[in-house]
């Protein structure tokens, strides 16, 4: 091997090492920059990228789209699931710490059976199931059931979520 070949190959090795690093970063890009989201990009940004503001209505104005059913989405604005979304189907969903719940929140300030969200005609009804630390809708603690409109922040333990239609 001539001196020149050696030098070229040595440079090639260094280049390859960095190319390898870049390929590795490329394969985990979804974890670094978040998955591609078509709607509402800022609400779905994963936690490390940018802290989503808690003030719900400011970031995500409800879009009065033509609605055919109650299908909506819960968007997590704060708490352990921040940045995630949960598609609601046309059936009730329970929220609580118990693993039987439809939406399990691992949070010591959440009761085992904390609240229930049920479809009601064209909208949704949120019902507090006698939780210890309460369910707050728009900053006010609710008792019993209240209709839940899109874009109003709901606080349960350290989780803040809102309904989007």
């Amino acid at each position: 091997m001539s001196g020149l070949t050696y030098v070229v190959l040595s440079g090639g090795l260094l280049a390859l090492m960095w190319i390898f690093v870049l390929i590795v970063l490329w394969t985990i890009r979804a974890d670094l920059f978040g998955p591609k989201v078509k709607r509402l990009p800022q609400a779905a940004t994963p936690p490390p990228a940018s802290p989503a503001p808690i003030a719900g209505p400011a970031t995500a104005p409800p879009i009065p789209a033509p609605r055919t059913s109650q299908a909506g989405e819960l968007v997590f604005l704060d708490g352990p699931l921040r940045g995630r979304r949960l598609t609601l189907r046309d059936q009730p969903i329970t929220i609580g710490r118990d693993s039987d719940s439809g939406l399990v929140l691992h949070d010591d300030y959440v009761s085992s059976y904390h609240a229930r969200l049920s479809p009601n005609g064209s909208g949704w009804v949120l019902e507090d199931l006698g939780s210890t630390n309460g369910t707050y809708v728009g900053g006010r603690r609710i008792s019993g059931s209240v209709p839940l409109r899109p874009g109003i922040p709901v606080k349960i333990g350290s989780t803040v979520l809102e309904l989007q239609s």
Binding site: P35, K36, G83, R84, R85, T87, I93, G102, L103
Partner: peptide, 22 residues
């Protein structure tokens, strides 16, 4: 329960051929 399931971060990530990449 099925409703809980679609916590969307997980749902949006395509099923990738992890072992092929590896």
């Amino acid at each position: 329960m099925s409703t809980a399931s679609t916590v969307a971060g997980a749902a949006q990530v395509k099923e990738r051929n992890l072992r092929g990449i590896e």
